[in-house]
Each structure stands twice: as C-alpha cells, then as structure tokens.
Design a protein around this nucleic acid. Structure first.
Lengths: 113, 113
DNA sequence: AGAATTATTCGTAATTTTGCGAACAACAAA
DNA sequence: TTTGTTGTTCGCAAAATTACGAATAATTCT
C-alpha cells in the first residue's frame, strides 16, 4: 500500500477501500460467490472452480482472509473455508451506505467561478 | 490484468471486479464520495480534498473514468468531473446483488465425505 | 504577444500484484 | 515406516500500481 509519507485517510474510507480491493479480482469474486452459496467447503472444491493454479488460489484465499471476508480452519488433511459472516455484513453495510450517499445536491465551485 | 493464458471469467464477474478494483484505494473512495455529495466540480476542487500530488490525482481520475464510475468534460481552462449516474447505478446494483446472494444453504463437500 | 491558470502527460522509481511449478509440511492410510 | 493426499510456502518473473516533479498543452487574461 504505497501511501504518501506522513499522510492518511479516514478509517472507514480505508476499510471500504480494503473490502473493495479484496473484491477487485474476478477470481476472488468467484471464490466469494462460491462460498456465499453454501455453508462451507474445502480448498480443493474452490480450486476446482477456478481456472488458475492451486498456488495462486491459495494466495487469493490469503488476501480474502486478510481483508476479513473469509475464514479458514484446518480439518486434517483438508482446510475448510467459509464466509466470515460478521465482516461480510460489515462490508455489505459499508457498500450500501457508500452508494446511498448520492443525491445530486449542488454544483461545487467554491472559489468564485 | 495478468490473467492466465486462454482462460477467462464470466462477464458480470469481471464487471463487478472492475468496479471493486476501481474502488480499491482510499483516494478513489474519497473522490467518489466527494463527487457523490454534489452535482459536479472541477479537478482543482478534488485535488484540494486529497493529500497527494495533482499528477497522482489525475491518474486516479483516469482509473475511475476507465471503470466508468465518473465522467469528465473540458470547460476551459478547467475540467469538470461528475459521477456517471448510469454506471453508478449499475455498480450499486451489482454490489447489492452480490451481497444478497448469501444464504447459508448447505455444506459443499461434493466428493464422498 | 506575453504571462498566468489549469490539468494532463512524461519519465522515473519503488512496491505490489498475479501467476506458476517445485518443494515442503502435516496428517492419514496402507 | 512408507506412501498418498492436501494445501501452503518458496523462488522466481512479468506486469500493474502508486507516487512525484517536471514538462507540456490548452485556454484565458493583460
């Protein structure tokens, strides 16, 4: 995240951006859709759904985990993945609010104009 | 977009991913929020809102334009930017649908188990 | 014409992302 | 103990992202 030195953004702005970024790849959208359509499943099942190598799928899953959108737990010798319900709801709400905030109010043009 | 050779994703999966990717940076979230809070404004006004160089702001605006979320038109010597209402609604709907598709149905586990 | 304003483009650099195959680790089964 | 299954990690490469200052282009103002 190469942000400019000494500068930052609002905490909720960054959170929404993190959720969005995690969703910013078709493979990850597919993974989320797949997981959202069921209670849970194994890594291998997700792998089968995607046209990419398992190493790459594993990477995408890690990103989704880091964003908080999914969870995974070891169930030897497999790994079971599922949607993180709490953060999923959080993301849902964040996007909903974001899009609801459009209401053609007025032209900006502060300075004279 | 370094996708694997000869392979692709659903058209609507890619569209949602494109919207999400465009929103995947706090500066761009801020830009969109700012534009969504008014009818339209100039590049300079957007620039003032952000803690980054104008060259970088310009780049972010280009990305948002490419994703279809905003539009910009020259109004010499300024450039007026605004939300692209049509695609904004499209994105809103895409996200809404995406998140509504969660309904803990059943465990996957196709193969035996 | 010359100077000022506005925003994009250029050139460059550092970092991150995406992808793969091979190697590895952890556990179960034979 | 050896073998097999499952998924992560490693090492690498190519491309994309983010950022900046300087240069440029387009237009207006003097």
């Amino acid at each position: 995240m190469v942000y400019p030195k000494n500068k930052a953004y609002d905490i909720d702005t960054e959170e929404l951006a993190r959720f969005a970024k995690a969703m910013g790849h078709p493979a990850r959208i597919n993974i989320l859709r797949f997981l959202a359509s069921m209670d849970s499943c194994f890594f291998g099942d997700i792998c089968q759904e995607l046209p990419i190598a398992k190493a790459t799928v594993s990477q995408h899953l890690t990103e989704l985990k880091n964003a908080g959108l999914i969870r995974g737990e070891i169930e030897p010798p497999k790994v079971r993945y599922c949607i993180d319900q709490e953060n999923w709801e959080k993301a849902n709400e964040a996007f909903r609010q974001f899009f609801s905030n459009i209401q053609s109010k007025e032209v900006c043009c502060n300075h004279e104009n």
